[in-house]
Nucleic acid binder design. Structure first.
Ligand code: MN
Ligand code: MN
Ligand code: MN
Ligand code: MN
Lengths: 219, 219
DNA sequence: TTTTTATTTTAAGGTTGCTTAAACTTGTTA
DNA sequence: TAACAAGTTTAAGCAACCTTAAAATAAAAA
């Protein structure tokens, strides 16, 4: 397992969730920032190794074994993120960048020490589930976009979807973070924007697009 | 800077101290576990880059810039070791193995967070000095081998030299660790072995060879 | 000083992971 | 159905970092 293979498997897994099972070469190439030809090469190679289900011109899928490996890397990534955030105080953008490298260079043993130190947590600071040692993924049942909360209902923010560094800035601007309790004051169907009230009484209006990237559970 | 270059520079630095300035290609090759030819290649390459002072058939030396880079890597290595030991409870053998990889994949920013978390320490858990951000190396003044302590004198263990995994076992066996207070009870000139008394009153005899790898300051 | 030995360098080649450009499939549009 | 456009594969090649084996050099021994 090299860094390239790690990232290849991990991003098939993640992209598979985002695109509902239709991971294409160009899709993955964009994500990994390599040429499409490089993806074809790697896919064929990992196909032979039994990690990827590769058929020319077809969507890419992980095999059972490929899936297990992907989950192990994601586990390391998200445990590192939580550790760096909670213990060392790095911000949510930095933790991702550091974890992106550390995930490939940490033994299972060290990762288990970190998991124990954190009390075997289920979610990372972005609200994403941390797979267990056995590959079990904590459920996110009841987590829905903020756009589905009705007027006057309360909810707890569980997950913020990070699309780029700009979303990070916006979450900062509005003070949005996991664990926050919000009450939806008003929904504006005109443009989909939503007025919410924080626990401290302050109120802001979020754009529909931003709100659709904020996930929460009803309170 | 790649992992290979990191390790090349770091080990010239360390070997330079151990051999008093006579770092040969075969010497370094053994340390890095690569062929001697690979060392020559890399030395010439880094010579062109101004990191190594390379002259065919001569001993290898770091340039000013190469030295700075080596110290940065050593700083990361030793800070990681202390962090993994003190915070996460890894044993002294594991911390070295993990640090050996993490040192290459940690940003300066993260390392500074870790340094602050630890209170900007001067020594790693093996007693080796941790270079500062500016490249200043904490002094080890007064640190001498246990073999130089006279009968009935007390000393504090400051540094254990790890030669291989066996030394590690022996330090464990005798409960030797940095910070320990010892009193030399008796020196046996016959074979150089030394009888020491621990603070709890127990007494053991250490071989001369083992004692020469234990460093301490007089109390 | 010449010869022998140990060490270092040079040469040739392999693997991994990438690139660009050309050839090929596939599904859609005319 | 034929042509086109988009996406994918194949081909050729490059850089980094290794290897082994042969040639060159330096140091030690005869
Ligand atoms: Mn990564
Ligand atoms: Mn995350
Ligand atoms: Mn290393
Ligand atoms: Mn150390």
């Amino acid at each position: 397992m090299s860094v390239s293979i790690d990232n290849f498997l991990k991003n098939i897994y993640l992209l598979n969730q985002e695109t509902a099972g239709a991971v294409t070469s160009s899709n993955l190439a964009g994500r990994l920032e390599v040429s499409v030809a490089a993806v074809t090469d790697m896919a064929r190679k990992l196909g032979k190794q039994g990690l990827v289900d590769y058929k020319p011109y077809k969507a890419l899928n992980l095999t059972e074994r490929g899936n297990e490996l992907a989950l192990k890397i994601i586990r390391k990534h998200r445990l590192w993120e939580l550790f760096l955030h909670q213990v060392l105080g790095l911000d949510l953008l930095s933790v991702h960048q550091e974890a992106e490298r550390l995930e490939h260079h940490t033994s299972d043993e060290l990762m288990n020490h970190i998991s124990r130190f954190l009390g075997h947590p289920d979610f990372d600071p972005h609200g994403d589930p941390i797979p267990g040692i056995g590959g079990d993924v904590p459920s996110e049942k009841g987590v829905i976009p903020l756009t589905e909360i009705l007027e006057n209902q309360q909810c707890i923010v569980k997950k913020l979807r990070y699309r780029n560094s700009e979303t990070s800035d916006m979450y900062d601007r509005y003070g949005l973070m996991t664990g926050l309790v919000l009450r939806v004051i008003r929904v504006f169907p005109f443009d989909g924007s939503i007025e919410v009230k924080y626990e401290d009484g302050s109120e802001v209006v979020l754009s529909g697009k931003l709100a659709s990237n904020v996930f929460c559970v009803r309170k």
